[in-house]
Design a protein around this nucleic acid. Structure first.
Lengths: 114, 114
DNA sequence: TGCATATATAAGCGTATGCTTATATACTGA
DNA sequence: TCAGTATATAAGCATACGCTTATATATGCA
């Protein structure tokens, strides 16, 4: 069940994770649905290891879930996280990242993953 | 005027600042009104320089304002911050810090500042 | 003027963070 | 079975962070 109040320490941990431009963008992308690693790499224009390391932090903290399909790994928001309410509130207040995914699609780069 | 969407970079900066237990507690205290430095020191049980340095970060980022009165400096939330909506949303979701101030009052430690 | 109190700043230090490059692992298809 | 693609992990490094101790600044009061 969602809690409407989150204890200070876990709240600070979540905020710390989201207090990084790269990870915040990632979470913003995931708000609109799951993404695979290669999409993050394309959208964020960062090295694959760097992306992977950020994803690991998010996954270790339980903010995202992974789903493996073939050689790809898709990430999505974890709706069961204790601070999901806090996370959602934050994600609704930042600019929509969908546009970046659409740009990818135009370049034909998004079809790779399925 | 308050914006209902905050750009990603400034949002990340604010989240980073709030992603520290000490600063998040401080902001939680300020939600209920202004506090002077010595109160933070008492409530948080931290050294005065450490408190002062955290306050400086919050002030440099415009999250809090200061008001000098005599030898004391009172801090309060800055309602004009561009991300005030984000800040308020976060502060409403963490536990009320008022209790800690009340505890101080019981110990007679809060009367010092006026 | 001089001393006490409140706050800020500076310097130093151990640790955390985020990137890079190199390499390991996992899956797919020929 | 082997080569290619996707992802993860490891090691190294520069920088950021948060604390400590020491000191500076500012205000109030005798």
């Amino acid at each position: 069940m969602e809690k409407s109040v989150i204890e200070l320490e876990p709240a600070a941990s979540v905020l710390k994770l989201l207090g990084d431009k790269t990870r915040l963008t990632m979470m913003g992308l995931l708000k609109d649905g799951e993404c695979c690693v290669c999409e993050f790499v394309e959208v964020l224009q960062m090295s694959q290891p760097s992306i992977s390391q950020h994803l690991r932090k998010l996954r270790d903290a339980g903010l995202v879930k992974e789903r493996k399909k073939g050689q790809w790994v898709f990430y999505s928001l974890n709706p069961d996280h204790e601070a999901i309410l806090l996370i959602e509130r934050i994600l609704t207040i930042i600019p929509d990242q969908m546009e970046k995914l659409n740009d990818l699609e135009k370049k034909g780069l998004r079809i790779c993953c399925d």
